[in-house]
Amino acid sequence: MRTSPANIASAILTYGFVGLMAFLSVFPFIWMALGATNSSIDIIKGRLAPGEALATNIANFFTLVNVPLVFWNSAKVTIFATVLTLAVSSLAGYGFEIFRSRHRERLYRAMLLTLMIPFAALMIPLFIMVGKMGLINTHIAVVLPTIGSAFIVFYFRQSTKAFPSELRDAAKVDGLKEWQIFLYIYVPVMRSTYAAAFIIVFMTAWNNYLWPLIVLQSNETKTITLVISSLASAYYPDYGVVMVGTILATLPTLAVFFFMQRQFVQGMLGSVK
């Protein structure tokens, strides 16, 4: 690359812009981490330096919150939601792409339309259904409505377009049944698609707030998002404690993302190996 003044100027602009964006997205995290080490009053005063209150904040968080139980609840809901959503929605995405029928596209479009209905509109009917089933205040009620995810079905169908039909034909010649083709051929081939979908579903389930808030009724069933919300809305919230809670709540999604980063990028690019 020649270093003409125009090139240098554009490089400065590019890096300046990228740097600014990076700062904007990283700053809240820095602030959260610094906040966890400061007392609530220092946070209110806008102190932006590491403080000495970290141990106190952690101790207070652990006294106020039954941490093992809350994380256990969140983990339970998230793992069940993720596994079931991936299982159901990938089957649906596979089915939509592989099997032809007269009503396929109409059905598919109808399903995509459901993406446009805001959850707030579905909430009360859904709540009545769950109430009639006697599932209020259970984790089943939290997981159930998330399993059939139109977005994940859409995502799997799009990715399935890249799934070579020759593989399926060859498997059929070898005498595999449809479910065996799905389980032994499709799933391993679509690994990176699953990984990307896993991250998306995991994060959504872990951070899910409104629906768990509506169906969960007791301290024993609450997930981490509800607990942090309750801490943060006190008349005088202890922001140091809230920051500790937020950091702990961020760790699992962070870990999942870092472990599966490579597959996530591949999945997003839609590669099939």
Binding site: I124, G131, I136, Q217, N219, S230, A232
Partner: peptide
Amino acid sequence: NVVDFAKTDVEQKLQTGLASGTADALP
């Protein structure tokens, strides 16, 4: 059994519970 939610969360849950007419959903 004292259950703590955020203030806006209590309002949201109360509203949903009352609007849905599901009595066992209320405290």
